[in-house]
Every structure is written in C-alpha cells, then in structure tokens.
Amino acid sequence: MMLEHVLVVSAYLFSIGIYGLITSRNMVRALMCLELILNAVNINFVTFSDFFDSRQLKGNIFSIFVIAIAAAEAAIGPAIVSSIYRNRKSTRINQSNLLNK
C-alpha cells in the first residue's frame, strides 16, 4: 500500500466533500458532506502516524479527538436542523432566512 495512493484518495474525499458542502440544498446532506471532510482529515492523520511515527502513535490520538468532535457536531447539527424544520417545515438551505428579519 503506497503512501501516495492513500493521500490521493484522501484528497479526493476532501474535494468532493467541499463540493457537496457548497452545492447541496438540503441541510442533512450538507452535514453528511461535513462528515466526509472530517474523514479525509482522519485518513491523513492515521496514514502519517502509521508511516512516520509508528512507535509514538500521536496521529491516532489526534484522530480519536477528531472523531469525538465529529460526534459532538453530529449531535448538535440534526438538533438545529429539526428545530428549523419545526418552525419552517423545510430543510432547504436557500429558504432558511430565520435570522433575516
């Protein structure tokens, strides 16, 4: 398993996550694309920890921290989306202007 191939896969996941995060019109799909971006970061952490730092393993510890932050984000995100859905009956991003008035 080459290091470059893993990095290319990680860069692919990162760019497609950013594309989906910008262009999606559904809030839940935007949250899914955010998970893709965090997973690309995690792949890089674990790969570099395995290749360069296989005794200390500090990249693994950082990836565990990133997973914990992603869990907190995935708890907050659907709660906010469901609160918006309860008020507006829609989860479209381009229609949510609750802070506008």
Binding site: L31, M32, N42, V46, L57, N60, S63, A68, A71
Partner: peptide, 24 residues
C-alpha cells in the same frame, strides 16, 4: 485495520457507523 490502527478502526466503526450514521 489495514494500516495497523485497530483502536481507531474500532472507534470509527462504533462512533461513525453506529452513532453518527444512524443519527443522520
């Protein structure tokens, strides 16, 4: 698992697939 990080693999399977994906 392939890159010898079994603890992170277990955490990924439990937290991401078991919690975050089910929540989404």
């Amino acid at each position: 698992i392939l890159s010898n990080s079994h603890l992170v693999a277990a955490a990924q399977l439990l937290i991401y697939v078991g919690a975050i994906n089910v929540l989404i």
